[in-house]
Structure formats: structure tokens, C-alpha cells
């Protein structure tokens, strides 16, 4: 991941937005009474799809893969969590948006950590 402030800000913005929007859509679609497994799977797929609407404009400003993969991961996790939550209790929009943004922050942190492990030089021969 990039340590330049412009891209740190961009990564944060994209993931907070992707998480919030995915959560909001999931809470809109899934409601109390949904079977838990169906709620999880539908909201995961929906979250991943919806995150693309955040990715496209953000990619122009902040990068390609470095925006797409975290945003899709955030959308998937945020959709899953909020979808399952919404299947148990009715969720208002504000709570869904806030919880989704928190998912975005956590997911981005996880990707930062994973990237720390994966990046670097491998030499051959």
C-alpha cells in the first residue's frame, strides 16, 4: 500500500464509502425473517456488486487494483455482516451506514497487514 498521504486518504475514503454503501443496500434488501444463510449470501454478493459503484469513480483519482480489491473485499464483508444483522433485527439507515463504514476501516486495516506480509522481492536462481 502507498504511504503517500494522498493515497492513504484515498484508500480510506474508498473503503469507508464502499462499506457504508454496501451496508445501506444490504439493510434495504434484507429484512427480519430472512433465513440467515440466504441473508448472508445475498448481502455478500450485493455488497461486492455495490462496491463497484464506489470503485469506478475512486479509481480515476486513487488507482486501480489498490482501490478495487480493498473496496470489493469491504463490500463483501460489510454486506455479509449487515445482511445477517438485518435478518435478525430491523436496521435504520444511520446504523447501517455507520456499521458499514466501520467494516471498511477494519477491512482496509486487514489488507494493509496482509500487504505487509506479501509485498517485497523474491529472487530466483
Amino acid at each position: 500500500m502507498d504511504s503517500r498521504w494522498y493515497f492513504v486518504f484515498g484508500d480510506l475514503l474508498a473503503n469507508l464509502l464502499a462499506g457504508a454503501v454496501a451496508a445501506w443496500f444490504s439493510a434495504l434488501v434484507v429484512g427480519p425473517g430472512w433465513p440467515m444463510l440466504a441473508a448472508m449470501l445475498v448481502a455478500m454478493a450485493l455488497g461486492m456488486l455495490v462496491s463497484l459503484f464506489v470503485f469506478f469513480p475512486c479509481s480515476i483519482l486513487f488507482g486501480a487494483m489498490e482501490v478495487m480489491l480493498p473496496a470489493m473485499f469491504t463490500g463483501m464483508v460489510s454486506g455479509m455482516i449487515i445482511g445477517m444483522w438485518a435478518a435478525m433485527h430491523p436496521l435504520d439507515s444511520g446504523t447501517a451506514l455507520l456499521a458499514g463504514a466501520c467494516c471498511g476501516l477494519v477491512c482496509l486495516s486487514l489488507i494493509w497487514l496482509l500487504n505487509t506480509r506479501l509485498r517485497g522481492v523474491r529472487s530466483y536462481g
Binding site: 487494483m65 500487504n115 509485498r119 523474491r122 536462481g125
Partner: peptide
């Protein structure tokens, strides 16, 4: 080709 070096810049993607 004979691989000499791969430098992962973002995950194992870029």
C-alpha cells in the same frame, strides 16, 4: 525465460 526477480508491490497482484 529464466526468472530472476519478482517484486510484489501490492499483495501478490501488482
Amino acid at each position: 525465460f529464466e526468472l530472476r526477480q519478482v517484486n510484489h508491490l501490492f499483495l501478490d497482484v501488482v
